[in-house]
Design a protein around this nucleic acid. Structure first.
Length: 181
DNA sequence: AACACCATCAACCGCGGAAAA
DNA sequence: GTTTTCCGCGGTTGATGGTGT
């Protein structure tokens, strides 16, 4: 696929955002809404590339962001969703209101992953690393797996009103119809 | 007090998919 | 049907603050 650079590198700023840049981005989006990230920086008077603006808005400036520590319920949901979907952070984020994919990804890599490994579970497969005690809790039979996935679906029901749930999240669930109650 | 190491989080990079031309 | 452009995603890196020695 032919791809041109997403922005003229010579004219864009990188690194941490300043308060002034945040204010410019917020006021522009409040006035004009999201979308057309490529032209947004110029229109908003920012010397950033569109991608950078989008990331800043999605991960930090959006008014509906929750921020703060993850609750144990959220942790549980992330672990179960990850066991079902893998590293589909955007889908996982869509089921956790106020959380972003980047935030969840960071939390997974810095906390959950380590916690699972210390309890003898391979974080990528969600199976015991060896014949440790974790094997007892993490039985590998289909029935057990299905019940786990079913639990997952109950925690995060795909709702048509869910603000950001992408269509392929529903597809993933449709691929496991037997899991529905 | 100074340094090294570690953990966390914000931000960047490159790729793939989808839409438009 | 092919090419080009843009958006969004996931992986990775860099900066910063906290903790231990």
């Amino acid at each position: 696929m032919g791809r041109s650079p997403c922005c003229e590198k010579g004219h864009t700023k990188k690194g941490t955002w300043t308060k002034e840049e945040d204010d410019l981005l917020i006021s522009y989006i409040k006035a004009h809404g999201e979308g057309c990230w490529r032209s947004l920086p110029k229109a908003a008077g920012l010397l950033r590339c569109g991608k950078s603006c989008r990331l800043r808005w999605i991960n930090y400036l959006r008014p509906d962001l929750k921020r703060g520590n993850f609750t144990s319920e959220e942790d549980e949901a992330i672990i179960r969703l990850h066991s079902l979907l893998g590293n589909k952070w955007s889908i996982i984020a869509a089921t956790l209101p106020g959380r972003t994919d980047n935030e969840i990804k960071n939390h997974w890599n810095t906390n959950i992953k380590r916690r699972l490994m210390s309890s003898g579970i391979d974080p990528s497969t969600h199976r015991p690393i060896d014949g440790s005690a974790a094997a007892i809790q993490n039985n590998d039979t289909e029935g057990e797996k299905n019940s786990e996935l079913s639990l997952e679906l109950r925690i995060s029901p795909p709702s048509p009103h869910s603000p950001k749930l992408p269509p392929n999240a529903a597809e993933k669930i449709e691929q496991n119809p037997q899991l529905l109650p």
